[in-house]
Design a protein around this nucleic acid. Structure first.
Length: 489
RNA sequence: CGGGGCGUAGCGCAGCCCGGUCAGCGCACCUGCUUUGGGAGCAGGGGGUCGCAGGUUCGAAUCCUGCCGCCCCGACCA
Protein backbone atom coordinates (compact mmCIF):
# COMPACT_ATOMS: atom_id res chain seq x y z
CA UNK A 1 0.00 0.00 0.00
CA UNK A 2 1.24 3.46 -0.87
CA UNK A 3 2.40 5.69 1.94
CA UNK A 4 -0.07 8.18 3.32
CA UNK A 5 2.74 10.72 3.60
CA UNK A 6 3.63 13.03 0.72
CA UNK A 7 7.39 12.70 0.06
CA UNK A 8 9.47 15.65 1.23
CA UNK A 9 11.06 16.33 -2.12
CA UNK A 10 7.67 16.50 -3.78
CA UNK A 11 6.04 19.03 -1.48
CA UNK A 12 7.66 19.83 1.86
CA UNK A 13 4.67 21.79 3.20
CA UNK A 14 2.27 18.98 2.41
CA UNK A 15 4.72 16.48 3.91
CA UNK A 16 4.70 18.51 7.12
CA UNK A 17 0.90 18.60 7.29
CA UNK A 18 0.75 14.86 6.55
CA UNK A 19 3.18 14.03 9.36
CA UNK A 20 1.26 16.16 11.85
CA UNK A 21 -2.06 14.60 10.90
CA UNK A 22 -1.15 10.98 10.36
CA UNK A 23 1.28 10.99 13.26
CA UNK A 24 -1.67 11.84 15.50
CA UNK A 25 -0.07 15.11 16.69
CA UNK A 26 -2.76 17.67 15.92
CA UNK A 27 -5.60 18.59 13.62
CA UNK A 28 -7.35 21.71 12.46
CA UNK A 29 -10.21 22.76 14.69
CA UNK A 30 -13.59 24.37 14.07
CA UNK A 31 -11.91 27.69 14.84
CA UNK A 32 -9.86 29.17 12.02
CA UNK A 33 -6.18 29.24 12.80
CA UNK A 34 -6.53 27.19 15.98
CA UNK A 35 -5.53 23.56 16.30
CA UNK A 36 -6.59 20.66 18.43
CA UNK A 37 -3.45 19.19 19.99
CA UNK A 38 -4.05 15.45 20.12
CA UNK A 39 -2.72 13.18 22.89
CA UNK A 40 0.51 12.23 21.11
CA UNK A 41 1.33 15.84 20.24
CA UNK A 42 0.43 16.98 23.71
CA UNK A 43 2.59 14.29 25.28
CA UNK A 44 5.59 15.69 23.39
CA UNK A 45 4.78 19.17 24.66
CA UNK A 46 4.44 17.77 28.19
CA UNK A 47 7.91 16.23 27.92
CA UNK A 48 9.32 19.60 26.84
CA UNK A 49 7.41 21.28 29.65
CA UNK A 50 8.61 18.80 32.28
CA UNK A 51 12.25 19.26 31.29
CA UNK A 52 12.06 23.05 31.25
CA UNK A 53 10.02 23.29 34.43
CA UNK A 54 12.71 21.29 36.22
CA UNK A 55 15.50 23.46 34.79
CA UNK A 56 13.66 26.67 35.69
CA UNK A 57 13.21 25.53 39.26
CA UNK A 58 16.83 24.39 39.51
CA UNK A 59 17.82 27.95 38.55
CA UNK A 60 15.66 29.54 41.23
CA UNK A 61 12.46 30.31 39.37
CA UNK A 62 8.92 29.71 40.60
CA UNK A 63 5.66 29.41 38.70
CA UNK A 64 2.69 31.75 39.00
CA UNK A 65 -0.34 32.59 36.91
CA UNK A 66 -1.60 35.91 35.61
CA UNK A 67 -4.92 36.74 33.90
CA UNK A 68 -5.79 35.84 30.32
CA UNK A 69 -7.26 39.33 29.83
CA UNK A 70 -5.31 42.53 29.68
CA UNK A 71 -6.95 45.96 29.91
CA UNK A 72 -6.48 47.76 26.60
CA UNK A 73 -4.86 50.74 28.35
CA UNK A 74 -2.07 48.51 29.71
CA UNK A 75 -0.93 47.56 26.23
CA UNK A 76 -0.67 51.23 25.29
CA UNK A 77 1.84 52.07 28.03
CA UNK A 78 4.99 50.87 26.31
CA UNK A 79 5.21 52.52 22.88
CA UNK A 80 7.24 49.92 20.99
CA UNK A 81 5.34 47.08 22.61
CA UNK A 82 1.94 48.32 21.50
CA UNK A 83 3.22 48.97 18.00
CA UNK A 84 4.49 45.42 17.76
CA UNK A 85 1.36 43.68 18.95
CA UNK A 86 -1.60 45.98 18.17
CA UNK A 87 -2.14 44.48 14.71
CA UNK A 88 -2.80 40.97 15.98
CA UNK A 89 -4.93 41.24 19.09
CA UNK A 90 -8.22 39.53 19.91
CA UNK A 91 -10.40 42.04 21.76
CA UNK A 92 -13.23 41.35 24.19
CA UNK A 93 -15.83 44.12 24.13
CA UNK A 94 -18.95 42.52 25.68
CA UNK A 95 -19.71 40.15 28.50
CA UNK A 96 -23.17 38.81 27.66
CA UNK A 97 -25.30 37.30 24.90
CA UNK A 98 -29.06 37.34 24.56
CA UNK A 99 -31.84 35.99 22.36
CA UNK A 100 -33.18 38.58 19.94
CA UNK A 101 -36.80 38.89 18.72
CA UNK A 102 -36.22 36.07 16.19
CA UNK A 103 -34.80 33.78 18.82
CA UNK A 104 -31.25 34.23 17.50
CA UNK A 105 -28.35 34.38 19.90
CA UNK A 106 -26.74 37.82 19.62
CA UNK A 107 -24.29 39.98 21.55
CA UNK A 108 -26.22 42.07 24.06
CA UNK A 109 -25.41 45.71 23.20
CA UNK A 110 -26.30 46.66 26.77
CA UNK A 111 -23.42 44.51 28.02
CA UNK A 112 -20.59 46.57 26.60
CA UNK A 113 -17.42 46.70 28.69
CA UNK A 114 -16.26 50.08 29.98
CA UNK A 115 -12.80 49.26 28.68
CA UNK A 116 -12.08 46.55 26.09
CA UNK A 117 -10.00 43.61 27.25
CA UNK A 118 -7.21 42.18 25.12
CA UNK A 119 -6.64 38.44 25.10
CA UNK A 120 -2.95 38.35 26.06
CA UNK A 121 -0.51 38.09 23.13
CA UNK A 122 2.20 38.08 25.85
CA UNK A 123 2.01 39.11 29.48
CA UNK A 124 4.67 41.77 30.10
CA UNK A 125 2.11 44.51 30.72
CA UNK A 126 -0.19 42.75 33.15
CA UNK A 127 2.78 41.28 34.98
CA UNK A 128 4.70 44.53 35.31
CA UNK A 129 1.53 46.25 36.45
CA UNK A 130 1.41 43.61 39.20
CA UNK A 131 5.14 43.81 40.00
CA UNK A 132 4.68 47.47 40.92
CA UNK A 133 2.92 46.26 44.07
CA UNK A 134 5.38 43.48 44.78
CA UNK A 135 8.67 45.33 44.51
CA UNK A 136 9.68 48.08 46.90
CA UNK A 137 13.20 47.32 48.01
CA UNK A 138 16.34 45.70 46.66
CA UNK A 139 15.52 43.00 49.19
CA UNK A 140 12.50 42.05 47.03
CA UNK A 141 14.84 41.33 44.13
CA UNK A 142 15.51 39.37 42.10
CA UNK A 143 11.96 38.26 41.36
CA UNK A 144 12.14 35.12 39.21
CA UNK A 145 8.75 34.05 37.94
CA UNK A 146 7.62 31.81 35.12
CA UNK A 147 4.13 31.23 33.77
CA UNK A 148 2.82 28.30 31.72
CA UNK A 149 0.00 29.69 29.64
CA UNK A 150 -1.81 30.04 26.36
CA UNK A 151 -1.59 33.25 24.36
CA UNK A 152 -3.38 34.55 21.26
CA UNK A 153 -1.88 36.34 18.31
CA UNK A 154 -4.33 36.88 15.46
CA UNK A 155 -2.00 35.88 12.65
CA UNK A 156 -3.05 36.25 9.03
CA UNK A 157 -1.67 32.92 8.02
CA UNK A 158 -1.26 29.95 10.32
CA UNK A 159 0.49 26.59 10.21
CA UNK A 160 0.02 23.69 12.61
CA UNK A 161 2.42 24.12 15.57
CA UNK A 162 4.61 26.66 13.73
CA UNK A 163 2.15 29.52 13.91
CA UNK A 164 -1.32 29.13 15.34
CA UNK A 165 -3.66 31.88 16.51
CA UNK A 166 -3.63 30.39 19.99
CA UNK A 167 -0.53 28.62 21.25
CA UNK A 168 0.85 27.17 24.45
CA UNK A 169 4.10 28.47 25.86
CA UNK A 170 5.99 29.44 28.92
CA UNK A 171 6.94 33.03 29.60
CA UNK A 172 9.47 33.93 32.22
CA UNK A 173 9.38 37.45 33.64
CA UNK A 174 12.15 38.46 35.97
CA UNK A 175 13.00 41.64 37.84
CA UNK A 176 16.51 42.61 38.91
CA UNK A 177 18.35 45.31 40.81
CA UNK A 178 21.07 45.82 38.20
CA UNK A 179 21.56 45.79 34.47
CA UNK A 180 24.39 43.28 34.70
CA UNK A 181 22.28 40.83 36.67
CA UNK A 182 19.36 41.12 34.25
CA UNK A 183 21.60 40.59 31.23
CA UNK A 184 23.15 37.59 32.91
CA UNK A 185 19.67 36.16 33.55
CA UNK A 186 18.62 36.62 29.93
CA UNK A 187 21.71 34.75 28.74
CA UNK A 188 21.32 32.03 31.38
CA UNK A 189 17.84 31.24 30.12
CA UNK A 190 18.99 31.26 26.52
CA UNK A 191 21.55 28.65 27.57
CA UNK A 192 18.80 26.48 29.01
CA UNK A 193 16.91 26.74 25.73
CA UNK A 194 20.03 25.80 23.81
CA UNK A 195 20.55 22.77 26.04
CA UNK A 196 16.92 21.72 25.61
CA UNK A 197 17.30 21.95 21.85
CA UNK A 198 20.61 20.16 21.64
CA UNK A 199 20.54 17.61 24.44
CA UNK A 200 16.87 16.71 24.49
CA UNK A 201 15.41 17.55 21.08
CA UNK A 202 18.66 16.73 19.26
CA UNK A 203 18.29 19.95 17.29
CA UNK A 204 21.57 21.88 16.91
CA UNK A 205 21.01 25.62 17.03
CA UNK A 206 22.91 28.80 16.43
CA UNK A 207 22.54 31.46 19.07
CA UNK A 208 23.13 35.17 19.16
CA UNK A 209 21.49 38.56 19.29
CA UNK A 210 18.67 39.85 17.09
CA UNK A 211 19.02 42.97 14.96
CA UNK A 212 16.93 45.99 15.97
CA UNK A 213 14.49 45.13 13.20
CA UNK A 214 13.95 41.60 14.46
CA UNK A 215 14.04 42.09 18.21
CA UNK A 216 11.04 41.79 20.53
CA UNK A 217 8.77 44.82 20.66
CA UNK A 218 9.81 46.57 23.86
CA UNK A 219 13.18 44.87 24.37
CA UNK A 220 16.60 46.47 24.52
CA UNK A 221 18.19 43.24 23.28
CA UNK A 222 16.68 39.98 22.10
CA UNK A 223 18.73 36.78 22.16
CA UNK A 224 17.64 33.85 20.06
CA UNK A 225 18.29 30.22 19.20
CA UNK A 226 17.72 29.32 15.56
CA UNK A 227 17.43 25.90 14.01
CA UNK A 228 17.77 24.95 10.36
CA UNK A 229 14.97 22.82 8.98
CA UNK A 230 15.32 20.17 6.28
CA UNK A 231 13.97 22.49 3.59
CA UNK A 232 16.75 24.97 4.31
CA UNK A 233 14.58 27.48 6.15
CA UNK A 234 15.46 28.76 9.60
CA UNK A 235 13.14 28.44 12.56
CA UNK A 236 13.33 30.69 15.62
CA UNK A 237 13.05 28.21 18.46
CA UNK A 238 13.26 30.39 21.53
CA UNK A 239 13.97 33.94 22.56
CA UNK A 240 15.22 35.63 25.68
CA UNK A 241 14.92 39.38 26.07
CA UNK A 242 16.83 41.93 28.07
CA UNK A 243 14.09 44.54 28.57
CA UNK A 244 16.23 47.18 30.28
CA UNK A 245 14.04 49.48 32.33
CA UNK A 246 11.43 49.94 29.60
CA UNK A 247 8.58 48.15 31.32
CA UNK A 248 9.57 49.40 34.76
CA UNK A 249 9.29 52.95 33.46
CA UNK A 250 6.00 52.26 31.67
CA UNK A 251 4.47 50.75 34.81
CA UNK A 252 6.39 52.81 37.32
CA UNK A 253 8.12 49.95 39.10
CA UNK A 254 10.88 51.34 41.33
CA UNK A 255 12.87 49.97 44.21
CA UNK A 256 14.92 51.50 46.96
CA UNK A 257 18.52 50.41 46.52
CA UNK A 258 21.01 49.68 49.31
CA UNK A 259 22.13 53.32 49.18
CA UNK A 260 18.55 54.46 49.82
CA UNK A 261 17.94 55.83 46.30
CA UNK A 262 14.87 55.10 44.11
CA UNK A 263 15.74 53.23 40.93
CA UNK A 264 13.77 51.63 38.11
CA UNK A 265 13.82 47.83 38.06
CA UNK A 266 15.72 45.91 35.37
CA UNK A 267 13.79 43.22 33.52
CA UNK A 268 13.99 40.14 31.36
CA UNK A 269 11.43 37.94 29.65
CA UNK A 270 11.92 34.67 27.80
CA UNK A 271 9.79 32.04 26.16
CA UNK A 272 9.44 28.93 24.08
CA UNK A 273 6.24 27.58 22.61
CA UNK A 274 4.52 24.59 21.05
CA UNK A 275 6.38 25.65 17.92
CA UNK A 276 9.19 23.43 19.21
CA UNK A 277 7.09 20.42 18.21
CA UNK A 278 7.24 21.76 14.64
CA UNK A 279 11.02 22.02 14.94
CA UNK A 280 11.24 18.37 15.96
CA UNK A 281 9.15 17.30 12.99
CA UNK A 282 11.07 19.33 10.44
CA UNK A 283 14.50 18.43 11.80
CA UNK A 284 14.19 14.66 12.15
CA UNK A 285 11.09 13.54 10.22
CA UNK A 286 11.37 11.40 7.11
CA UNK A 287 9.08 10.13 4.36
CA UNK A 288 7.69 7.48 6.70
CA UNK A 289 6.60 10.07 9.24
CA UNK A 290 7.80 11.42 12.53
CA UNK A 291 11.18 10.50 13.99
CA UNK A 292 11.48 11.28 17.69
CA UNK A 293 14.70 11.51 19.67
CA UNK A 294 14.35 9.02 22.56
CA UNK A 295 14.75 11.70 25.21
CA UNK A 296 11.55 13.44 24.06
CA UNK A 297 9.56 10.43 22.84
CA UNK A 298 6.45 9.81 24.97
CA UNK A 299 6.83 6.13 24.09
CA UNK A 300 10.39 4.92 23.53
CA UNK A 301 9.93 1.22 22.87
CA UNK A 302 7.01 -0.75 21.50
CA UNK A 303 6.88 -4.54 21.68
CA UNK A 304 4.79 -6.09 18.90
CA UNK A 305 3.90 -9.77 19.36
CA UNK A 306 3.34 -12.07 16.40
CA UNK A 307 1.03 -14.94 17.14
CA UNK A 308 -1.58 -17.28 15.74
CA UNK A 309 -3.25 -18.53 18.85
CA UNK A 310 -3.90 -16.92 22.20
CA UNK A 311 -1.52 -19.38 23.77
CA UNK A 312 1.31 -18.02 21.62
CA UNK A 313 0.44 -14.46 22.57
CA UNK A 314 0.60 -15.51 26.17
CA UNK A 315 4.01 -17.10 25.65
CA UNK A 316 5.36 -13.93 24.05
CA UNK A 317 3.91 -11.81 26.81
CA UNK A 318 5.52 -13.97 29.48
CA UNK A 319 8.85 -14.06 27.68
CA UNK A 320 8.94 -10.27 27.32
CA UNK A 321 7.60 -9.35 30.76
CA UNK A 322 10.99 -9.52 32.55
CA UNK A 323 12.61 -7.39 29.84
CA UNK A 324 9.89 -4.78 30.02
CA UNK A 325 10.17 -4.66 33.78
CA UNK A 326 13.94 -4.25 33.56
CA UNK A 327 13.67 -1.51 30.93
CA UNK A 328 11.10 0.38 32.99
CA UNK A 329 13.39 0.13 35.99
CA UNK A 330 16.00 1.92 33.86
CA UNK A 331 13.54 4.68 32.99
CA UNK A 332 12.58 3.40 29.55
CA UNK A 333 8.94 3.82 28.54
CA UNK A 334 7.65 0.70 26.82
CA UNK A 335 4.33 -0.65 25.58
CA UNK A 336 3.28 -4.18 24.77
CA UNK A 337 0.84 -3.88 21.88
CA UNK A 338 -1.45 -6.88 21.99
CA UNK A 339 -4.28 -5.09 20.17
CA UNK A 340 -5.90 -7.82 18.08
CA UNK A 341 -7.74 -5.45 15.74
CA UNK A 342 -4.64 -4.69 13.72
CA UNK A 343 -2.10 -6.86 11.98
CA UNK A 344 1.60 -6.59 12.81
CA UNK A 345 2.24 -4.82 9.50
CA UNK A 346 -0.35 -2.22 10.33
CA UNK A 347 1.28 -1.63 13.70
CA UNK A 348 4.75 -1.27 12.16
CA UNK A 349 3.50 1.54 9.94
CA UNK A 350 1.55 3.17 12.74
CA UNK A 351 4.49 3.35 15.14
CA UNK A 352 6.74 4.61 12.37
CA UNK A 353 4.23 7.40 11.66
CA UNK A 354 4.30 8.29 15.34
CA UNK A 355 8.09 8.25 15.54
CA UNK A 356 8.56 5.60 18.25
CA UNK A 357 12.37 5.15 18.41
CA UNK A 358 12.63 1.38 18.90
CA UNK A 359 10.39 -1.52 17.91
CA UNK A 360 10.84 -5.02 19.28
CA UNK A 361 9.10 -7.86 17.43
CA UNK A 362 8.73 -11.31 18.94
CA UNK A 363 6.98 -14.24 17.28
CA UNK A 364 6.98 -18.05 17.25
CA UNK A 365 10.40 -18.20 15.53
CA UNK A 366 11.87 -16.00 18.22
CA UNK A 367 10.31 -18.04 20.99
CA UNK A 368 12.01 -21.11 19.51
CA UNK A 369 15.38 -19.35 19.06
CA UNK A 370 15.28 -17.11 22.13
CA UNK A 371 15.66 -13.97 19.95
CA UNK A 372 13.86 -10.74 19.13
CA UNK A 373 13.88 -8.53 16.06
CA UNK A 374 14.87 -5.02 17.09
CA UNK A 375 14.29 -2.16 14.65
CA UNK A 376 15.48 1.44 15.04
CA UNK A 377 13.25 4.20 13.67
CA UNK A 378 15.99 6.63 12.69
CA UNK A 379 17.76 4.42 10.15
CA UNK A 380 15.17 1.67 9.71
CA UNK A 381 17.84 -0.95 10.45
CA UNK A 382 16.73 -4.25 11.97
CA UNK A 383 18.85 -6.65 13.96
CA UNK A 384 18.21 -10.04 15.49
CA UNK A 385 19.12 -9.94 19.18
CA UNK A 386 19.38 -12.92 21.49
CA UNK A 387 17.59 -12.76 24.81
CA UNK A 388 20.96 -12.84 26.54
CA UNK A 389 21.75 -9.43 25.08
CA UNK A 390 18.27 -7.91 24.71
CA UNK A 391 18.06 -6.36 28.18
CA UNK A 392 21.09 -4.13 27.59
CA UNK A 393 20.76 -3.75 23.86
CA UNK A 394 17.52 -1.75 23.88
CA UNK A 395 18.63 0.99 26.31
CA UNK A 396 21.97 1.18 24.49
CA UNK A 397 20.16 1.57 21.22
CA UNK A 398 18.07 4.42 22.61
CA UNK A 399 21.27 6.25 23.60
CA UNK A 400 22.75 5.58 20.21
CA UNK A 401 19.68 6.90 18.40
CA UNK A 402 19.70 10.06 20.50
CA UNK A 403 23.36 10.71 19.66
CA UNK A 404 23.08 9.76 16.06
CA UNK A 405 20.07 12.02 15.41
CA UNK A 406 21.99 14.94 16.84
CA UNK A 407 25.08 14.14 14.77
CA UNK A 408 23.01 13.78 11.63
CA UNK A 409 21.25 17.10 12.25
CA UNK A 410 24.58 18.80 12.99
CA UNK A 411 26.11 17.46 9.81
CA UNK A 412 23.11 18.66 7.83
CA UNK A 413 23.27 22.10 9.40
CA UNK A 414 27.02 22.37 8.80
CA UNK A 415 26.58 21.26 5.20
CA UNK A 416 24.11 24.08 4.68
CA UNK A 417 25.96 26.82 6.53
CA UNK A 418 27.97 29.07 4.25
CA UNK A 419 30.36 31.97 4.64
CA UNK A 420 30.03 34.37 1.74
CA UNK A 421 31.57 37.71 0.83
CA UNK A 422 29.95 38.56 -2.47
CA UNK A 423 26.41 39.49 -3.39
CA UNK A 424 26.11 36.90 -6.18
CA UNK A 425 27.16 34.05 -3.94
CA UNK A 426 24.88 35.35 -1.22
CA UNK A 427 21.85 35.29 -3.51
CA UNK A 428 22.71 31.84 -4.81
CA UNK A 429 23.11 30.35 -1.32
CA UNK A 430 19.94 31.99 0.00
CA UNK A 431 18.09 30.58 -2.98
CA UNK A 432 19.35 27.07 -2.16
CA UNK A 433 18.37 27.41 1.50
CA UNK A 434 20.59 27.38 4.55
CA UNK A 435 22.37 29.66 7.00
CA UNK A 436 24.40 32.23 5.11
CA UNK A 437 26.97 34.14 7.11
CA UNK A 438 27.80 37.45 5.48
CA UNK A 439 29.13 40.92 6.30
CA UNK A 440 26.53 43.61 6.98
CA UNK A 441 27.01 47.34 7.33
CA UNK A 442 24.78 47.41 10.40
CA UNK A 443 22.04 49.66 9.02
CA UNK A 444 18.32 48.92 9.04
CA UNK A 445 18.09 50.25 5.46
CA UNK A 446 20.47 47.57 4.20
CA UNK A 447 18.75 44.86 6.21
CA UNK A 448 15.37 45.80 4.73
CA UNK A 449 16.75 46.05 1.22
CA UNK A 450 18.26 42.58 1.48
CA UNK A 451 14.95 41.22 2.73
CA UNK A 452 13.14 42.94 -0.12
CA UNK A 453 15.47 41.45 -2.71
CA UNK A 454 15.96 37.94 -1.34
CA UNK A 455 13.32 37.31 1.38
CA UNK A 456 16.25 36.59 3.68
CA UNK A 457 16.31 38.10 7.16
CA UNK A 458 19.06 38.45 9.72
CA UNK A 459 18.47 35.51 12.02
CA UNK A 460 21.10 36.55 14.50
CA UNK A 461 24.30 38.45 15.15
CA UNK A 462 26.89 36.01 16.56
CA UNK A 463 28.66 37.01 19.77
CA UNK A 464 32.08 36.26 18.41
CA UNK A 465 33.07 38.65 15.65
CA UNK A 466 36.24 38.75 13.58
CA UNK A 467 38.55 41.77 13.94
CA UNK A 468 37.75 42.76 10.38
CA UNK A 469 34.25 41.67 9.31
CA UNK A 470 34.92 42.70 5.70
CA UNK A 471 32.68 44.74 3.42
CA UNK A 472 28.86 44.68 3.40
CA UNK A 473 27.59 42.30 0.73
CA UNK A 474 24.96 44.77 -0.44
CA UNK A 475 26.47 48.22 -0.07
CA UNK A 476 30.20 47.47 -0.10
CA UNK A 477 30.58 49.73 2.94
CA UNK A 478 32.84 48.56 5.77
CA UNK A 479 30.82 45.94 7.62
CA UNK A 480 29.89 46.26 11.26
CA UNK A 481 29.28 42.55 11.82
CA UNK A 482 29.26 39.21 10.12
CA UNK A 483 25.67 38.03 10.63
CA UNK A 484 23.62 34.93 9.89
CA UNK A 485 21.03 35.35 7.15
CA UNK A 486 18.35 32.87 6.12
CA UNK A 487 14.85 32.59 4.85
CA UNK A 488 12.76 31.78 7.89
CA UNK A 489 9.44 30.45 9.06
C1' C B 1 -5.45 41.52 2.12
C1' G B 2 -3.83 39.40 -2.90
C1' G B 3 -3.41 34.44 -5.80
C1' G B 4 -5.08 29.23 -6.11
C1' G B 5 -8.18 25.17 -4.45
C1' C B 6 -12.16 22.89 -1.87
C1' G B 7 -17.11 22.14 0.85
C1' U B 8 -21.33 15.12 -0.93
C1' A B 9 -21.24 9.36 5.58
C1' G B 10 -16.12 9.81 10.80
C1' C B 11 -11.90 10.39 6.92
C1' G B 12 -10.50 10.54 1.59
C1' C B 13 -13.15 11.12 -2.90
C1' A B 14 -16.42 10.21 -7.66
C1' G B 15 -20.90 12.17 -9.56
C1' C B 16 -21.92 18.38 -11.47
C1' C B 17 -20.04 20.40 -18.07
C1' C B 18 -24.87 17.36 -20.53
C1' G B 19 -31.10 18.29 -14.47
C1' G B 20 -34.71 12.53 -14.34
C1' U B 21 -32.99 4.56 -10.24
C1' C B 22 -26.75 9.50 -8.55
C1' A B 23 -27.29 8.87 -2.97
C1' G B 24 -22.29 6.09 -4.91
C1' C B 25 -16.89 4.24 -4.12
C1' G B 26 -12.47 3.32 -0.87
C1' C B 27 -10.95 3.45 4.17
C1' A B 28 -12.97 3.43 9.03
C1' C B 29 -17.22 1.28 12.01
C1' C B 30 -20.65 -3.25 13.59
C1' U B 31 -21.49 -9.11 13.29
C1' G B 32 -19.40 -13.78 12.11
C1' C B 33 -15.62 -17.01 10.40
C1' U B 34 -10.68 -17.55 8.72
C1' U B 35 -6.05 -14.79 9.55
C1' U B 36 -1.50 -12.30 11.97
C1' G B 37 7.07 -12.02 10.51
C1' G B 38 5.60 -4.88 6.59
C1' G B 39 -1.03 -1.29 6.32
C1' A B 40 -5.17 -9.39 5.98
C1' G B 41 -9.47 -12.12 3.37
C1' C B 42 -14.55 -13.47 2.70
C1' A B 43 -19.74 -12.84 3.85
C1' G B 44 -23.40 -9.82 5.93
C1' G B 45 -24.71 -4.88 8.10
C1' G B 46 -25.36 0.39 10.01
C1' G B 47 -24.50 5.42 8.71
C1' G B 48 -25.45 11.19 4.51
C1' U B 49 -30.64 18.06 5.73
C1' C B 50 -25.06 16.61 -0.97
C1' G B 51 -21.85 23.95 3.39
C1' C B 52 -26.22 27.68 4.08
C1' A B 53 -30.24 30.71 1.99
C1' G B 54 -33.02 32.07 -2.03
C1' G B 55 -34.38 31.26 -7.27
C1' U B 56 -35.40 28.52 -12.20
C1' U B 57 -38.05 23.78 -13.20
C1' C B 58 -43.06 18.85 -13.33
C1' G B 59 -38.28 17.50 -11.10
C1' A B 60 -31.91 20.29 -8.49
C1' A B 61 -25.96 17.33 -5.42
C1' U B 62 -26.21 18.93 -10.74
C1' C B 63 -28.37 25.31 -13.60
C1' C B 64 -28.63 30.80 -11.57
C1' U B 65 -27.89 34.53 -7.44
C1' G B 66 -26.14 35.70 -2.72
C1' C B 67 -23.78 34.27 1.67
C1' C B 68 -20.65 31.25 4.97
C1' G B 69 -16.53 28.23 6.05
C1' C B 70 -11.89 25.81 5.39
C1' C B 71 -7.08 24.57 3.22
C1' C B 72 -2.64 25.81 0.33
C1' C B 73 0.84 29.79 -1.70
C1' G B 74 2.54 35.15 -0.72
C1' A B 75 2.97 39.89 2.45
C1' C B 76 3.12 40.21 8.62
C1' C B 77 4.77 37.24 12.83
C1' A B 78 6.99 32.81 18.49
Amino acid sequence: MASVITPRDKDFSQWYVDVVKHGGLAEHSAVKGCMVIKPHGYAIWEAIRDYLDRRFKETGHVNAYFPLFIPQSFLAKEAEHVEGFAKECAVVTHYRLKLDADGQLVVDPAAKLEEPLIVRPTSETIIWNTYRNWIHSYRDLPLLINQWANVVRWEMRTRLFLRTAEFLWQEGHTAHASEAEAREEALRMLDIYRELAREVLAVPVLSGRKSDQEKFAGAVDTYTIEGLMQDGKALQMGTSHFLGQNFARAFDVKFLNAEGRQEYVWATSWGVSTRLVGALIMTHGDDRGLVLPPRIAPLQVVVVPIYRKDAQLQQVREAMAPFMEAWRARGVSVRFDDDDNHSPGWKFHEYELKGVPVRVVVGPRDLANRTAEVARRDTGEKELVSWDALGDRVPALLDDIQQSLLRRAEAERDRRTYEVDTWNEFVRRIEDGGFVIAPWDGTAETELAIKEKTKATIRLIPDEQPDDPGRCILTGQPARYRVVFARAY
